[in-house]
Lab assay of single mutants.
Amino acid sequence: MATGGRRGAAAAPLLVAVAALLLGAAGHLYPGEVCPGMDIRNNLTRLHELENCSVIEGHLQILLMFKTRPEDFRDLSFPKLIMITDYLLLFRVYGLESLKDLFPNLTVIRGSRLFFNYALVIFEMVHLKELGLYNLMNITRGSVRIEKNNELCYLATIDWSRILDSVEDNYIVLNKDDNEECGDICPGTAKGKTNCPATVINGQFVERCWTHSHCQKVCPTICKSHGCTAEGLCCHSECLGNCSQPDDPTKCVACRNFYLDGRCVETCPPPYYHFQDWRCVNFSFCQDLHHKCKNSRRQGCHQYVIHNNKCIPECPSGYTMNSSNLLCTPCLGPCPKVCHLLEGEKTIDSVTSAQELRGCTVINGSLIINIRGGNNLAAELEANLGLIEEISGYLKIRRSYALVSLSFFRKLRLIRGETLEIGNYSFYALDNQNLRQLWDWSKHNLTITQGKLFFHYNPKLCLSEIHKMEEVSGTKGRQERNDIALKTNGDQASCENELLKFSYIRTSFDKI
């Protein structure tokens, strides 16, 4: 039985969820670079991206490699990797027998973001014989899940209580170790020597080791999670996991709180800001991140802002960003909400898709409305799209047979046209069989910064309504002859009103 693990408890099935942008060198404390989270699957090609990484700022997932063999891993080693800020997950990587050479110096898994409450997941690794993470000293947050690894031993010899604050939620089941077939031998045991430290858990006094050649490092209890030197002297209180010299914040392997210019500090002093819960960055760093993602459509890219001495992905609820200094300031009234469309555009074809934009005031991208039916549609669209004030790209209304009016965009005031449909149009209306009105132009103002209007096959939309939009939106004169079809717009509506004058002759039985 794995020490510190839980057996036999019912657990939810383990679901495996399925960018080499360097964020800056980590400095003297770390020998390499800070790398983003990685999802490495199918083959070993991307694994080489770990070569210079000291910190993975995010998670590391290595999974679904069915053609790899043990010899493929023999020359692979990433000794610079010290810390993973989120979680480490391995799933069905064939041929991998140990992690001792792959990650010989991995010391800390912070667990800032977890995989279903777990910071370390080893699942269905069919050839893994031992973990071998002999320098792993601290899992700051989260638990361990090690399950269905039929060859995995050296679990009962690990004292997880020396690595985690609590072992109650560890789930370590259905491994070879369960069948008591392992016969784990710690260093020196074969020669009758006791080389590794022994600890007591559940009444068992057991030597602690990761492999037959690597003991588990056990520091004096007084050192807590700070770690200790090879001689057993406690590291500085700002260290986490390990250090090369005692009581020196510049000799830590990793930091308990924050890293700044080669030393570990309790908090980031001005003019620095907390970033990702582990390091200090200056304003320029946060500003660069903001600008890199301002026009990016890459998933996970955030326009970072500053709030409460932190550089964070977005302002919290009730705050909006001051564009001059990136500071989050309290909103006066309802907060603006910028919604970034991942692929640059979004099609609204149902109430469900409209709900995804609920509360958005600025759309960074283009909207395509293609709704053919739905219950209580006008009210639903207004509830979900009615706060949109600005669209950076274009607005396209296409084959939306259920629409009679666009009044559900009740606050839309600006279409920038930074991206144009077919390279020309910022407003595009095609084949809307029941569209009769755009907006009530006596109450609604709309500016279209650039781009043209396109109207074709809107049989109940009168040309007068379209011409009014040209005047109000500032697009009059931009359109070419064929942009607004004269014969297919309003051709099934009563669009022309003329005053009919009647004269009559009164007659009676005795007068003409």
Rank of each mutant, 00 (worst) to 15 (best):
residue 97 E to H: 12
residue 78 F to A: 03
residue 117 N to V: 10
residue 97 E to V: 11
residue 184 D to W: 11
residue 329 T to G: 12
residue 29 L to A: 15
residue 256 R to A: 10
residue 266 E to S: 13
residue 214 H to W: 08
residue 100 K to H: 14
residue 300 G to W: 07
residue 100 K to I: 07
residue 53 C to Q: 00
residue 82 I to T: 03
residue 164 L to V: 15
residue 180 E to I: 10
residue 40 I to N: 01
residue 78 F to M: 15
residue 309 N to Y: 04
residue 90 L to H: 00
residue 304 Y to P: 05
residue 124 E to T: 14
residue 211 T to R: 04
residue 290 H to Y: 10
residue 324 S to I: 01
residue 122 I to G: 01
residue 135 N to H: 06
residue 119 A to H: 00
residue 105 N to M: 03
residue 270 P to L: 08
residue 263 R to G: 02
residue 192 G to Q: 07
residue 279 R to K: 04
residue 160 W to L: 06
residue 197 P to F: 09
residue 322 N to L: 15
residue 159 D to Q: 09
residue 297 R to T: 09
residue 334 P to R: 15
residue 213 S to F: 00
residue 161 S to T: 12
residue 85 T to D: 02
residue 38 M to C: 05
residue 187 P to F: 14
residue 214 H to D: 07
residue 314 E to T: 15
residue 103 F to L: 05
residue 104 P to V: 01
residue 55 V to D: 01
residue 315 C to N: 00
residue 191 K to V: 15
residue 169 D to S: 10
residue 131 L to A: 15
residue 105 N to S: 08
residue 33 E to I: 09
residue 289 L to Y: 12
residue 118 Y to R: 02
residue 115 F to R: 04
residue 201 I to G: 05
residue 149 N to G: 03
residue 182 C to I: 04
residue 75 D to C: 04
residue 165 D to Y: 10
residue 323 S to L: 11
residue 115 F to C: 08
residue 91 F to G: 15
residue 279 R to E: 07
residue 294 K to Y: 15
residue 236 H to L: 01
residue 121 V to D: 00
residue 119 A to S: 10
residue 87 Y to I: 01
residue 156 A to D: 01
residue 173 V to M: 04
residue 211 T to D: 05
residue 189 T to E: 13
residue 226 H to I: 08
residue 298 R to S: 07
residue 302 H to C: 08
residue 149 N to A: 08
residue 74 R to Y: 10
residue 97 E to Q: 12
residue 295 N to I: 15
residue 104 P to T: 01
residue 221 T to P: 04
residue 120 L to N: 00
residue 59 H to C: 12
residue 36 P to R: 10
residue 157 T to D: 07
residue 110 R to C: 10
residue 258 F to R: 05
residue 144 V to F: 02
residue 67 K to Y: 13
residue 70 P to T: 09
residue 327 L to T: 10
residue 41 R to M: 03
residue 125 M to D: 04
residue 209 C to G: 10
residue 234 C to W: 00
residue 303 Q to L: 07
residue 214 H to T: 09
residue 57 E to V: 08
residue 319 Y to V: 02
residue 265 V to M: 07
residue 159 D to P: 11
residue 166 S to G: 10
residue 148 K to T: 04
residue 265 V to R: 02
residue 307 H to V: 08
residue 272 Y to P: 00
residue 164 L to S: 11
residue 44 L to Y: 10
residue 125 M to L: 05
residue 201 I to F: 15
residue 284 S to A: 11
residue 265 V to H: 01
residue 324 S to P: 15
residue 302 H to W: 14
residue 224 K to S: 10
residue 333 G to S: 15
residue 277 D to G: 07
residue 109 I to E: 00
residue 66 F to I: 14
residue 199 T to C: 07
residue 322 N to R: 14
residue 124 E to W: 03
residue 238 E to R: 04
residue 299 Q to G: 12
residue 196 C to F: 14
residue 237 S to W: 08
residue 103 F to A: 01
residue 298 R to I: 08
residue 311 C to L: 04
residue 194 T to V: 08
residue 325 N to Y: 09
residue 269 P to M: 04
residue 88 L to W: 01
residue 63 L to Y: 15
residue 144 V to P: 01
residue 210 W to L: 05
residue 87 Y to R: 00
residue 226 H to Q: 05
residue 35 C to T: 00
residue 31 P to N: 15
residue 286 C to M: 01
residue 239 C to V: 01
residue 201 I to R: 04
residue 216 Q to A: 10
residue 217 K to N: 11
residue 244 S to W: 07
